[in-house]
């Protein structure tokens, strides 16, 4: 998943707040995933319109790290999720 890829959640997968446990979860058929704080900020920006690079731009303004590091980490995270079928790249 490179900077130009546009990630989205496929049908049946959604990011949801689990208020009872005070956390967010990605719910997929038969499976669930719990993002850490930074991963949650990434997933909240996955809308099927923003590219990986666009997400990196937004987060680089909020986090204290070089933009290229942020983009590389985001791409790696989303690639891992894509292998699990939790996101797809458009």
């Amino acid at each position: 998943m490179d900077g130009a890829a546009v990630p989205r959640f496929p049908r049946g997968v959604r990011l949801r707040e689990d208020a009872a446990r005070g956390r967010w979860v990605v719910l997929a058929p038969e499976r669930a995933f719990v993002p850490d704080d930074v991963a949650l900020e990434v997933l909240k920006l996955v809308d099927g319109e923003r590219s990986v690079g666009g997400i990196a731009d937004l987060l680089a303004a909020r986090f204290d790290a070089p933009r290229e590091v942020i983009e590389a980490d985001i791409a790696e995270m989303l690639r891992d999720l894509a292998e699990r079928g939790v996101v797809v790249a458009g």
Binding site: F33, D36, V38, F63
Partner: peptide
Amino acid sequence: MAWIKPRVAEVSLA
């Protein structure tokens, strides 16, 4: 805010 490599953990629904 500090950037920490983002991670997503799979949890067992069971």
